[in-house]
């Protein structure tokens, strides 16, 4: 476990058509390169899970990878809507997209329950929202002691959980710091997992607030410097705000998006397959 491999081999082994795949990272350490590798390998019918689907999921949805999205917020942070996501929901382009909408606390609790091996989580959320009427798997649950009616949400146990982190050692132990969101939870909750890292080092030095994922909790580790771009990796890179701004225009237009896809993500594939790709 914690086997060090290439991004391409890891995705080829982990991601399959129809899989439930969660890429996590809250504005920070988003595994964008891994998402683009899934596009490159042409996966289809995925159930994509993510608390805050942003550009990387817009790209995957626009490329036709997803059948369903499980989420609690979607947008291009600080910029506006995700237009590929919108096009898929409103117009079924390039394929229809089913949505399952939750709250942030609900999603986080679902990962925690999944990581703990429990079938569901209990929280005091969703009260006074329309989500209960929209999302059938949000259920009331009554405390058998106090009679208080709380909310239950089902555990999330994705087939594949993917996050980006700062460092791993050669045994595949991963260290991350800064905003670590639900990184730990999604890896522990997923049946199999991949952590892309900025660098692989001989020794992990203790750091304030750092989270260690032991190698035995992870399936694969791949060294992908800059793999979170346009998000950032604290201590390694800055957030590329221009990219987020530029994405708005690209994603608004199907042709512009198609051009972007062939000229960036699929460039490598075209180089291999020639013009038919």
């Amino acid at each position: 476990m914690g086997e060090i491999t290439s991004l391409r081999d890891a995705i080829a082994d982990l991601a399959f058509d129809g899989a439930t795949v969660a890429l996590e990272g809250f504005t920070h350490l988003i595994p964008v390169a891994a998402g683009q590798e899934i596009i490159r390998q042409g996966r289809r019918d995925l159930t994509l899970v993510r608390m805050t689907p942003d550009i990387v999921y817009d790209q995957m949805i626009g490329a036709g990878c997803a059948r369903k999205l499980v989420f609690s917020w979607a947008g291009n942070p600080g910029v506006g809507s995700l237009h590929r996501f919108r096009d898929a929901v409103q117009n079924g382009w390039p394929v229809p997209l089913e949505i399952e909408e939750h709250s942030h606390a609900g999603m986080a609790n679902r990962y925690v329950a999944g990581a703990a091996g429990l079938p569901f989580a209990v929280l005091r959320g969703y009260v006074g929202t329309d989500l209960v009427a929209q999302t059938p798997n949000i259920k009331p649950i009554t405390c058998p002691f106090t009679g208080e009616v709380l909310t239950a949400v089902p555990a999330l146990n994705p087939d594949v959980g993917i996050v980006h982190a700062q460092r791993a050692d050669r045994a595949g132990n991963v260290q991350m710091w800064g905003i670590t969101g639900v990184h730990k939870e999604v890896v522990l909750a997923s049946k199999r997992s991949l952590v892309t890292v900025e660098e692989i080092v001989d020794h992990l030095d203790p750091r304030p607030g750092a989270v260690i994922l032991p190698h035995w909790a992870i399936t694969y580790v791949a060294e992908v410097p800059g793999g979170a771009h346009p998000s950032y990796a604290m201590g390694y890179s800055e957030r590329d705000n221009d990219y987020y701004q530029a994405w708005d225009a690209i994603s608004r237009d199907r042709d512009a998006f198609g051009d972007w896809l062939t000229s960036t993500v699929m460039r490598e594939v075209r180089a291999i397959l020639g013009d038919q790709a």
């Binding site: 079938p119 569901f120 259920k139 009331p140 649950i141 058998p144 002691f145």
Partner: peptide, 18 residues
């Protein structure tokens, strides 16, 4: 002590820890 049943398809019965 009480048990609590999962409201989902698994229907699993768990301990409700107060």
């Amino acid at each position: 002590l009480r048990t609590i049943r999962s409201p989902y398809e698994d229907g699993e019965e768990l301990v409700a820890m107060p």
